[in-house]
């Protein structure tokens, strides 16, 4: 499929596993929080920001192995994916449901800000050719 050696795949997997282990809240997404490249990723960023929850973010677009290995680890086919304390919480649909029910604030250990806005309808892919730095480090 590719000419990558098993060692390189192994290191990608290890880098993802370390990132999940070392960051209490981490979002794997398309694009960056400042420049999301997909409506679903944008909505998750907006949700976390609405709860004023600090989070780490990894852009999976620069290297297709990131998405492959992430989905292999999490057994979850789509992006974005939110992990809290090492556990997969869900993708965009589950994050939105948990936000609306108030459970997400509990999972994240934050207070729901009184002015927390209702989430807007999901946007759709606005994929564009891009170049992005790998923020996994």
């Amino acid at each position: 499929m590719t000419d990558l050696s098993p060692n390189q795949d192994q290191s990608v997997r290890q880098a993802i596993e370390s990132a999940i282990a070392e960051n209490e809240v981490i979002l794997f997404m398309k694009g960056t929080p400042d420049d999301p490249k997909c409506g679903f990723s944008a909505r998750c960023v907006a949700t976390l920001q609405a709860l004023e929850s600090p989070f780490a973010a990894v852009d999976i677009l620069p290297d297709p192995r990131l998405r492959q290995e992430l989905s292999a680890i999490s057994n979850w086919p789509t992006i974005p994916q939110l992990f809290v304390r090492g556990e997969l919480i869900g993708g965009c649909d589950i994050i939105t449901e948990l936000y609306e029910s108030g459970e997400l604030a509990e999972v994240l250990g934050v207070q729901t800000p009184p002015e927390a806005p209702a989430m807007v309808a999901p946007g759709l892919d606005t994929a564009a050719p891009i170049e992005i730095t790998n923020r996994l480090s």
């Binding site: 057994n75 979850w76 086919p77 789509t78 997969l88 919480i89 869900g90 589950i94 449901e97």
Partner: peptide, 10 residues
């Protein structure tokens, strides 16, 4: 769980 329900569909 929600996650498992969605996985079932995926």
């Amino acid at each position: 769980s929600r996650i498992e329900q969605h996985r079932r569909v995926y």
